[in-house]
């Protein structure tokens, strides 16, 4: 049997106006138009979305999970970036 496959697409769906698109899964399709139509049938059969993005999986660049500790380390010791780092004296409000 032939194994000529359609490319793989990642699917992102905006569930309602005001929210960002969120990754929901992937599917195979010959081109972007078909990917969007298939995504509608596979991922929004119950009105789960108002907008669909598709992108060919091979075009996504990602950080490497092997290096993620070192990669995200610079933010680790900067607790002063959080408001809870600061003491607010008693009696001060609206802050």
């Amino acid at each position: 049997m032939s194994t000529k496959e359609w490319p793989l697409w990642e699917v992102f769906i905006r569930s309602k106006q005001g929210l960002s698109h969120k990754h929901v899964g992937s599917l195979r399709a010959a081109d972007s138009e078909m990917a969007i139509e298939n995504a509608r049938d596979v991922y929004t059969r119950r009105l789960e979305g108002v907008s669909i993005w598709v992108v060919e999986s091979k075009l996504i660049a990602a950080s490497d999970p092997k290096d993620s500790d070192a990669f995200f380390e610079p933010a680790e010791d900067k607790i002063y970036r959080h408001p809870t780092f600061y003491d607010v004296p008693d009696g001060i409000s609206h802050m």
Partner: peptide, 29 residues
């Protein structure tokens, strides 16, 4: 609608298996 859902389930799952490096066409064969 019920049977169409089952097709959807199959597709969610094939795509989950593909994230592990499974070859979809091979697996169907």
């Amino acid at each position: 609608a019920k049977v169409q859902d089952e097709a959807g389930h199959g597709l969610y799952l094939y795509s989950a298996a593909e994230t592990l490096g499974m070859d979809r066409e091979q697996s169907i064969d």
